[in-house]
Every structure is written in structure tokens, then in C-alpha cells.
């Protein structure tokens, strides 16, 4: 289906990240991803949508190689970052190559100050102190609130500020690609919008490519250029964000709007049958 989509909308930009038909198994028995393929083009914001347990986080962790310390394993398929196979690298190697994950649930270092948190992000950098100091100012430019709280312990700042710290910390590694896992989790709608705005600005101003796993479909499709919908470890639909937003099924099942003339429960079931064919 993926090929059909790309044929319909021929893409000229190069793929930064190409995930090809990966299968992920946890603990040697639990099959979580059953052949997921996706692509992120240079300078794109790609949304990975789906319900709880669909496999969004697993996909991101498979790419960033964080999955190994959770006893997960990519057993089939390949992951390429800028044309290079990366599925056997360590997270450290991948960060050095410019691909970094912002984990779900923020994961700030609670006993470090905000500024120290940001600086830990520069661990892999080898381009000297001034470059790091410049990037620190750049991060403070995008997140002025963090500058105000720079000496506070990250464990004591608000959830929104923690999410900003987590994103800022990732930016400190000077990435060209960011895997952003559920940045809206537990945040007020206004803050979610603020954070998405900043991600969009980073995308346009810094040329940062973003792969975004998100449950907040509405918000994600507003900012993304392309989207994939995951269900039960499979990609069931993909397309330009605009076309997804207008898609009848997406509107009904993920955005909770539309589907006006479809009232009967039987029609919903027929949708599900149809979907099985697609997958």
C-alpha cells in the first residue's frame, strides 16, 4: 500500500529515515510490530498515529535502539538512517549520527538542574565548548521559560517545562532528526499547542526532521506533513496529513467528528472488514 501512496504522490526529497518492514519481539515471545514500514523525508514532520498499544513507542524505540534494554529485539526488516543500516548500533552511535529520541513521559534528570539537564544532551558532542554554549543559548531562545528556571531542579518544575527541558536536552546533541514520543502527554491543551508550535519552528528554522508518535491525532495532523496510522503493530493507512485529515474513517475513528450519515453499527463493522484487506 505504501508503494501505491508514493506513486500517487511522487516525492522528490531524500528519505532521512527509512524503516522497512520491521518486526519487533519483546522477551522472545511477544510480537509487537508485525511488519512496519515508514519513511521520513528530509525536513519533514511525520506523524505516527494510533491508539494505546498500537506500537508507536515501540517503533520509535526500535529506531533509536533503546529497545534492547527493554528486552525487545528487531527480528526482521531493516532501519536505515541517511542510507546506512542502523539497527545494530547503540543509542550512543545513533545520537552521534544525528538521530535522537525524546522519550515518552519526559524523563528529565530530576536531581539535576534544568541547565545541567540540557548540558547532558551535549555529551556526544566533539565540536568544542563554544559551539555547545551557542546551542544552549539557541535552546533558551526557543524556550525562554527554561532560562528563567535554569537553576531549578528539573524534578520540581512543571510538566510543560519538563517536556521543554526534554526537547531542549535532545536539541543539545545538535540532531538532524528527532524522534518525539507523545509530547502532549499529560499537558494542558494550550501548552500542547505551544510545544507543537516550537517543534514546527525548529523544523522550519533549523531544518530538523521529526518523527512524531502521538495520540492527539488532531494536533499531530495539524502540524505534520505526512502521517501513518498504526493498529495492532501494523500500518493500516498512510498519506499526506491533509488527506488524512479529510479521510472519512480517520475523521470518525481518530478525530471523533464526521461520519454523519453512517449511523448503523453494522457499517462500522464493514469498515473494520475493509481495513483488514488493506493491512
Amino acid at each position: 500500500m505504501s508503494q501505491a501512496q508514493s506513486a500517487a504522490a511522487p516525492r522528490t526529497a531524500k528519505a532521512v529515515l527509512a524503516v522497512k518492514n520491521i518486526e519487533v519481539i519483546y522477551d522472545h515471545v511477544i510480537l509487537v510490530l508485525k511488519g512496519v514500514s515508514l519513511e521520513v523525508l528530509e525536513g519533514g514532520i511525520v506523524a505516527l498515529l494510533g491508539a494505546n498499544g498500537a506500537g508507536k513507542s515501540t517503533t520509535l524505540k526500535a529506531i533509536s535502539n533503546l529497545i534492547k534494554s527493554e528486552r525487545g529485539d528487531v527480528t526482521k526488516g531493516s532501519i536505515e538512517f541517511r542510507g546506512e543500516r542502523v539497527d545494530r548500533l547503540t543509542p550512543n552511535d545513533l545520537v552521534r549520527r544525528g538521530c535522537i529520541q525524546v522519550m515518552e513521559g519526559r524523563h528529565c534528570f530530576g536531581h539535576l538542574t534544568v541547565e545541567e539537564n540540557l548540558l547532558t544532551g551535549s555529551f556526544t558532542r566533539t565540536d568544542g565548548r563554544t559551539a555547545v554554549a551557542n546551542d544552549l543559548e539557541m535552546v533558551y531562545g526557543y524556550f525562554p521559560r527554561l532560562k528563567e528556571r535554569r537553576t531549578s531542579l528539573a524534578g520540581y518544575i512543571s510538566g510543560g517545562e519538563q517536556q521543554m527541558t526534554a526537547i531542549g536536552r535532545a536539541l543539545m546533541s545538535a540532531p538532524s532528526m528527532m524522534l518525539l514520543d507523545e509530547p502532549s502527554m499529560g499537558l494542558a491543551p494550550q501548552l500542547v499547542e505551544e510545544i507543537f508550535e516550537i517543534v514546527k519552528r525548529l523544523n522550519t528554522e533549523q531544518g530538523l526532521s521529526v518523527l512524531l508518535a502521538e495520540q492527539n491525532t488532531n494536533m499531530a495532523l495539524k502540524y505534520a506533513t505526512y502521517g501513518y496510522i498504526l493498529e495492532n503493530g501494523r500500518v493500516v493507512m498512510d498519506g499526506e496529513a491533509k488527506s488524512l485529515r479529510e479521510n472519512e474513517d480517520v475523521r470518525e475513528f481518530y478525530l471523533g467528528i464526521g461520519g454523519g450519515d453512517r449511523r448503523s453499527f453494522r457499517d462500522v463493522k464493514s469498515y473494520k472488514r475493509r481495513k483488514r484487506w488493506l493491512a
Binding site: L66, S69, P91, V95, V102, M103, H107, G121, F123, S173
Partner: peptide
């Protein structure tokens, strides 16, 4: 996990 994610 977070330390790993930032490349430490």
C-alpha cells in the same frame, strides 16, 4: 533510560 536516550 533517559541517559541512554541522549547518547550517554
Amino acid at each position: 533510560a533517559a541517559a541512554q536516550s541522549v547518547g550517554i
